[in-house]
Design a protein around this nucleic acid. Structure first.
Length: 822
RNA sequence: GCCGAAGUGGCGGAAUUGGUAGACGCGCUGGACUCAAAAUCCAGUGGGGCUCACACCUCGUGCCGGUUCGAGUCCGGCCUUCGGUACCA
């Protein structure tokens, strides 16, 4: 290959490092731009196509912003704790610390070869005590506010990874987000962060951030706000009450039975002796089902009556109490009022068990006495509802709720689907939870001055269901800080999503000692202006980080409400339709291309493949195209060495004075500046690069007939536009034509000459009855009367309108002339 | 089931507010260079028709309908693929 990429890339990477062009002056904040990619998980797989696809184009965007005059901060780091390193240790015996450090070393080298302008002074990794002690500190702050707490609850357990998982880490099909094994339910005592306290704010904040609509919607659905009313039902011959939650108080008169979740504490108390046998049997049968089986919507609903009756507070009607697995203990009150006529699930259940169906909402166009074939869940007019008859549903919801509250039968309530974040993990390679369990004092938080609780090196990795930390006696056995008695440390570690919930603060000064992060810097630099990463984090990392950010704000550590002002998701690159993964054996190694073609060619190709947000299936078929583009670019610059020094530099040309080739080149140069800027600014890299290809095509055709001034003008601009997307190549090209220093050391960008954007000739489409019949060249901005004359003289058009009546003429300047004829 | 995104040549993909569909690139075909090949350069390239040829005609953006002088773009109804979600009362 005639383009010596390896020398050129080495040369400029060295130059950038020596000149420190990627080091950000953090004290200059008036034009600050914090551009961040999701940090990298240092697994044995090293850098793969997905990383390149995330980092390369984002770096191009950041470089573009830098050339435009922004003070860009672009850091990178390592999400270094986590399961895969530990699983690797179990398999190979290599300690997670050792494998992680080796991987980081390799990955750092690979990242440098990409040629991104990362500020290496800001590099961080989460697996060192200087970092993770602040996870522990954060935990203690949450604990103090009651937002970190321990409870026994049914939780998700991954039998393969031998740890519990948060709700967000279980996929729709009930499998583990990390390893794909089927997750089971266990009752365990675990640590939770009370993210639900922030549910409303997390929901509202979505309106103020510039995120993809899709992602905001996913978070909205995940938070799942629902507005309704809790209603108390008295139990016949009992002092107990059953509280149900409903979003449809207007259907309260239609209740024909009440359902409790099988695990509900009232079940044992309320079950009549003669029903006990059936109820116990039923509860057993429910327990034996997996979560997926149980919550499957396809499965037929099951349930049994418990023999007791509830009393409908609005009409005094006695209705039977059932238990059924479609009532979930974890949502609302765990009790449901069943209105079969107006709820699909209740309808299905009532039909199966022959329970009465009572219509209380009239669908318009139907009669009250008609027997419904299915539940009617929309709005209608209330019937069979006493004093509320005749009200519309929407009004009924309010009126019935008013009535309930006035008569102390219940209260309005907002429920969220969001559950608290389960953060303990029965694994080794993570942040130890800073709690000591004392037989007499209970759970005792580690004193802040005793942080970090260091993760010991020596443990047994595969203790079979127990946390590995229990195998290190020195670690686990401590004295209670309160009473001095023998006590034990909490053996669990934190979910690694805790690490990633605040790392963007730490980047500004990862070496800062004595505090989580340096607020003198973060106050000016956070929020992150541009955050780029995969959409798969929509309801995990991106939700957790927003929560922790708001918590830190409430403690006074940041002034901003949101961590990431603008978010962009790169698409996923698949291979033969499947996600790339080691287990599937379809991972494409970027080195195969970078070693052969250079990093600029590879970066250009990734950007040129298609829309960034879409990703797509991997194919190297078109890479020859970007390779040729790079070659042609390099060669055209080589033809004009030092042209910048030889020619008088001009910033603007007078178009009428130019010859026809110069006109073409001048126009194309400025049109490309305009187009490229617009496209790359919006992450449309594919069309940005296409515009550069068009540009060089015109240059190659016309440059020999241009003056030296025009050559210098066009080539300088071409090199500049090229710089964000092919940084090494562009630096070299600019140097060839006489540039003396790195463009990134001294940023330059050009504004287009607006006069050059206008073509003096345009092709106008002439249509007859909407069909294209001719295209006619016209001076730019010709008016209708002028165009009309030419159109009506055109023989092709005359052919179509001869002998016909012209009904209408439509003229759009510079675009079309449409004749409607009969 | 529900929510969201997407369906355009042989392929990846372009097309402001509705205004010449197929930019740019791959591939392919022909030509130049070469002993030959690769590389490179030049020309052509949506389907069909017609012509010696230039031209011209016609059909074409998942399917069916609609609005409009004009629809890839707007509206209604489907189909397919991919994400998210899963009885949330």
């Amino acid at each position: 290959m005639r383009y010596p990429f390896s020398e050129i890339e080495f040369k400029w990477q060295k130059n950038w490092e020596e000149q420190q062009v990627s080091k950000t002056n953090l004290t200059e904040t008036s034009n600050k731009l914090y551009c961040l990619v999701m940090f990298i998980y240092p697994s044995g797989a090293k850098l793969h196509i997905g990383h390149w696809y995330n980092y390369g184009p984002t770096d191009s965007w950041a470089r573009y912003k830098k050339l435009k005059g922004f003070n860009v901060f672009e850091p990178i780091g390592y999400d270094a704790f986590g399961l895969p390193a530990e699983n690797y240790a179990i398999k190979t015996g290599i300690h997670p610390y050792d494998s992680t450090m080796t991987n980081i070393k390799d990955i750092r080298e690979q990242l440098k070869q990409m040629g991104c302008m990362y500020d290496w002074n800001a590099e961080l990794m989460t697996c060192v005590p200087e970092y993770y002690r602040w996870n522990q500190w954060l935990f203690l702050q949450l604990y103090k506010k009651g937002l970190a707490y321990r409870k026994n609850a049914p939780v998700n357990w991954c039998p393969n990874d031998k740890t519990v998982l948060a709700n967000e880490q279980v996929q729709a099909d009930g499998t583990c987000e990390r390893c794909g094994s089927l997750v089971i339910q266990k009752n365990l005592t675990q640590w939770f962060f009370k993210i639900t306290d922030y549910a409303e704010e997390l929901l509202k904040g979505l309106d103020q951030i510039n995120w993809p609509e899709k992602t905001r919607l996913m978070q909205r659905n995940w938070i799942g706000k629902s507005i309704g009313t809790e209603v108390k039902f008295k139990v016949e011959n009992s002092s107990d009450e059953i509280t149900v939650f409903t979003t449809r108080p207007d259907t309260l008169f239609g209740v024909t039975y009440v359902v409790l979740a099988p695990e509900h504490p009232l079940v044992a108390k309320l079950t009549k002796p003669e029903f006990k046998n059936g109820v116990d049997k039923y509860i057993d049968s429910v327990k034996s089902l997996s979560e997926i089986e149980r919550t499957s919507t396809i499965k037929e609903k099951t349930g049994v009556p418990i023999g007791a009756n509830a009393i409908n507070p609005v009409n005094g009607q006695k209705v039977p109490i059932w238990i059924a697995d479609y009532a979930l203990l974890t949502y609302g009150t765990g009790c449901v009022m069943a209105v079969p006529a107006h709820d699909e699930r209740d309808f299905e259940f009532a039909t199966k068990f022959n329970l009465p169906i009572k219509k209380v909402i009239l669908k318009s166009g139907t009669k009250p006495e008609e027997i419904p074939a299915e539940a009617y869940t929309e709005d209608g007019i209330m019937i069979n509802s006493g004093e509320f008859n005749g009200l519309k549903s929407s009004a009924g919801i309010e009126k019935v709720s008013d009535y309930i509250e006035k008569n102390k039968l219940g209260t309005r309530k907002v429920n969220y689907r969001l559950r608290d974040w389960l953060i303990s993990r029965q694994r080794y390679w993570g942040t130890p939870i800073p709690i000591i369990h004392c037989p007499s004092c209970g759970e005792v938080p580690v004193d802040e001055k005793d942080l970090p609780v260091e993760l010991p090196y020596n443990v047994e990795f595969n203790p079979g269901g127990e946390s590995p930390l229990t195998t290190n006696k020195e670690f686990i056995n401590v004295k209670c800080p309160k009473c001095g008695a023998d006590a034990k440390r909490d053996p669990d570690t934190m979910d690694t999503f805790v690490d990633s919930s605040w790392y963007y603060f730490r980047y500004l000064n990862p070496k800062v000692d004595g505090k989580m992060f340096d607020t003198s810097l973060t106050d000016n630099w956070v929020p992150v202006d541009m955050y780029v990463g995969g959409a798969e984090h929509a309801t995990m990392h991106l939700l957790y980080a927003r929560f922790i950010h708001k918590f830190l704000r409430d403690l006074g550590y940041t002034k901003s409400d949101e961590p990431f002002s603008t978010l962009v998701h790169q698409g996923t690159i698949t291979n033969q339709g499947a996600k790339m993964s080691k287990s599937k054996g379809n991972v494409v190694n970027p080195n195969d291309f970078t070693l052969k073609l250079g990093s600029d060619v590879f970066r250009l190709y990734l950007m040129f493949m298609g829309p960034y947000e879409l990703g797509g299936d991997w194919s190297d078929k078109g890479i020859a195209g970007t390779e040729r583009f790079v070659l042609r670019t390099y060669e055209i610059f080589k033809r004009f060495p030092d042209i910048l020094l030889k020619a008088n530099s001009k910033e603007k040309f007078n178009i009428p004075e130019l010859n026809s080739e110069e006109k073409i080149v001048y126009r194309k140069t400025n049109q490309t500046i305009q187009k490229f800027d617009e496209e790359i600014n919006n992450f449309r890299f594919n069309t940005a690069i296409a515009s550069l290809m068009e540009f060089i095509n015109e240059l190659l055709k016309n440059i020999d007939k241009c003056s030296d001034e025009m050559k210098a003008y066009a080539l300088r601009r071409f090199g500049t536009l090229l710089a964000p997307v092919a940084p090494h190549l562009a630096e070299e090209c600019l140097e060839i034509i006489g540039s003396k220093e790195s463009i990134f050391g001294k940023p330059v960008w050009f504004a287009p000459d607006t006069e050059a954007l206008i073509e003096d000739k345009v092709n106008l489409a002439v249509q007859v009855n909407g069909k294209l019949r001719a295209t006619i060249g016209m001076p730019n901005n010709s008016d209708q009367s002028y165009v009309k004359e030419i159109v009506f003289a055109d023989e092709k058009i005359v052919k179509y309108i001869e002998g016909k009546t012209i009904v209408k003429e439509i003229f759009v300047k510079n675009k079309i002339y449409n004749l409607v004829v009969k």
